[in-house]
Design a protein around this nucleic acid. Sequence first.
DNA 1: GAGAATGATTATAC
DNA 2: GTATAATCATTCTC
Length: 418
Amino acid sequence: MDDQQRMMHNQGQMANTNVLQQYGIPQQGDDPSDQRKQEIGDILQQIMTITDQSLDEAQARCRKHTLNCHRMKPALFSVLCEIKEKTVLSIRNSQEEEPPDPQLMRLDNMLIAEGVAGPEKGGGSSAAANATAAASGGQPDSAIEHSDYRAKLAQIRQIYHTELDKYEQDGSEIKNSDYEAKLAQIRQVYQTEYGKYEQACNEFTTHVVNLLREQSRTRPIAPKEIERMVGIIRKKFAAIEMQLKQSTCEAVMILRSRFLDARRKRRNFSKLATQVLNDYFNSHLSNPYPSEEAKEELARKCQITVSQVSNWFGNKRIRYKKNIGKAQEEANMYAAKTAAAAAANVGGHDGQGAAGYNLGSSQSGMGGGGMYMNLNGDNYQSSDNSVNTLRHVMPQSAGYSNDSMHNSYDQPQVSQLQ
DNA sequence: GAGAATGATTATAC
DNA sequence: GTATAATCATTCTC
């Protein structure tokens, strides 16, 4: 006990002494006779007896009234409260100042980061403060009824497991919009439950405080003790808050992991979708960069997302270009080989070295109508100038000089893909 | 089961 | 923000 507390304690004792004198209650030193000590002991014993007695409502009311009106009551309660403070409460006081729970802080941070909880909705330390301030727990020695909350938390888990299983069974992907929707659902459930939690805390705290105030008329309860009780309730409810937040975090984590897994999972587009995309690509070979509107239209036709259309065109362009390069490389190798053979057999051939390596030029026998092998191995009927350009490029590149190849690529239609 | 095809992701450049 | 190039992971084909 420090000096200040000691001083207050002494002052309290002096005040009590005055009060006892005022009410004519015998005190130690006043009259040290054993008989008076015995009287005080008797009074205390009576109070204890009243506490132990089971009374019906009428009796209780009557006795409470009697006790409340007793002239010695305020002084006696004051002394008893002081004794309680000195014994029980002082021991517990040292345990009350605790730092914020780091685990709760971590959960708060995650919920804020995921957009489930905001600062206004119980995020961070303010959330803990709100929760604890609003705490309204059960009676100290009776277990707080967690079952409702546990049932709710189990419900949250159940909802998300069910939904996610549904996705798995359908074999469908969790798309961005689905992810957002699910996250919003988590947010809504969390906020609803948190609101209920806060309300329950407030109601229960108010109830307990009122109860203790009422009881303080019939038994010595100091304001400090009521505060301490609120603190105990606060701790009990903090456990519920922790469970709620943990479950929400768990749901978010599961959703995230499933979402990322789903994104990783590749599923081939339908044949129709591939056909539509290929048609567009081949018919816009001179400029295979669909506008946003065109992408949306293609996405709608193919029943895929716009970003999938973008991916598809990105892949298509790069692979188309790569394939052209590969064909050119093979053609060059073949041309070199043929040229070498021609040199060995002077006068044996007409010098049309690459004629055998037919890439669909007009000389290949595919005719002016324009059949050429596209990158998927599909035969594509084209009327586009760019295709003619490509048809032109291939035999030339299969020709004999890099210059001729480059000249062909310099044509505007194809340069888009370089 | 191996290799090719294909959709998605990531790093980088503009 | 978009395109490219490289790469990963899955699906398809033989």
